[in-house]
Each structure stands twice: as C-alpha cells, then as structure tokens.
Amino acid sequence: MSSRTSRIRSVKLMLFPFSLEGAARIWLEKEPPRSILTWDDLVSKFINKFFPPSKTTNLRNEITRFQQKFDETFYEAWDRFNDLLRGCPHHGFSELHQLDTFYNSLNSNDQDLVELTHGCTSSSTPAVSSDVAELKDMVRALILDKKNQYSAPLRKSG
C-alpha cells in the first residue's frame, strides 16, 4: 500500500467518528480503547455490527430482484434502485452488474426509450455489457434528460 493511501486511510479513521450519530455513535463509543487501529479494522467491525450476513444477504437479494413498479417513472425507479444500493454499501456488485440489473428491471417502454435515445441494443448483449462506461453514460444522460423535462419552468403563452 502506498504512503498516500495509508495517509488517506488514517485521515478517514480520524474523521469517521464525526460522521456518526445515534446507534452508530453509541457503538463506537463503547468499543474498547485501541481496539480499532486501522481503517480496515473499523470497516470490518462496523459491517459486522450493522450489516450481519443475514441482513447483507437480504439486501443483496432486494437489489438483484429489483423491478420498476407499474406506475413508477424511469427517474423514480433509478432513485429507488440507488437507495437500495446505498442501503448496502458493501453489496459487492460491479458497476456493470448494477446497470445491467437496473436496465433489465425497466418496463419495456423505458427500455425502448434508453435504446432509442442512445442507439443501443439490449444491455445483455456482449457488445454492450463489455462497455460499462457507455451504458452508465446512457443511463445518466437519460436521467438528466428526464430531470430537465420535469424541472423546466412552464412558459406563459402570449
């Protein structure tokens, strides 16, 4: 590990307590002195305390089984999907897996919209799956496009 990485981890370790509140802060305060000496110690103990294996499995399953709801817009589905990912920060899914899961969860109209907007084919084909950045850019562009449509002020005619 480089000395820069080591310094970054040391800073994270020092600042981490300031990011906590509630049960997490109480947990850290109850840890025996000098029981957490490295960033890796902290990450391991924190995950074991707040994300036991059964909870992690349930959260990973929720992510894997994600589906866009019938009356849910593309943007709402994207937000909900990202909430699931944030709820399990150690899910271990690659960006490609995340994007592929999201794309495949969309209703056919939104899948068609992604394809038409960006001229691609199904994300499960090897050509698209091999290019994570392209799919990620397409999803982001579509989200920005949808966001701009919803947030554009109404103009008075006249």
Rank of each mutant, 00 (worst) to 15 (best):
T56P: 10
S157E: 09
S19I: 04
S2H: 11
F51L: 04
S105V: 05
F50T: 10
E95H: 13
S35T: 02
R65K: 15
K45T: 06
I47E: 14
Q111H: 03
H97Q: 13
T101D: 05
T57P: 12
R65D: 09
D41A: 04
F74G: 10
L28E: 00
E134N: 14
F50N: 13
L113G: 08
R25A: 15
K55L: 12
S2I: 07
G87W: 08
T125G: 06
A77M: 01
P52F: 09
N107C: 13
F74I: 06
T57S: 08
Q68Y: 02
E31Y: 00
N82K: 00
Y150W: 07
D41H: 12
L84H: 06
R86C: 01
L106D: 09
V11I: 14
W39M: 10
L59I: 13
N109Y: 12
S108K: 03
W39H: 08
Y150H: 03
S105E: 08
P52E: 10
D71E: 00
F81I: 13
R65T: 02
P32F: 01
F16E: 07
Q111W: 02
K55C: 01
E134S: 15
E76R: 04
S6T: 15
L154D: 04
G22Y: 08
L116Q: 09
I36S: 12
L154V: 01
S105H: 09
E72V: 04
R155P: 09
P53V: 03
F50C: 05
I26P: 04
P32W: 05
E29F: 06
V11D: 03
T121K: 06
A23P: 05
R86N: 04
R65M: 11
D110F: 08
D83L: 01
Q68A: 04
Y75P: 07
S94V: 04
M138L: 05
D41M: 14
H91A: 00
R4C: 14
G87N: 15
I26E: 15
Y103C: 14
K12Q: 11
K147F: 14
T38G: 07
D145M: 12
Q67D: 00
L99A: 07
R7S: 09
Y150L: 15
D112R: 03
K69D: 10
F81R: 03
N109D: 15
N82D: 07
A77W: 14
I26K: 10
Y150E: 14
R60C: 06
S35Y: 02
S108Q: 04
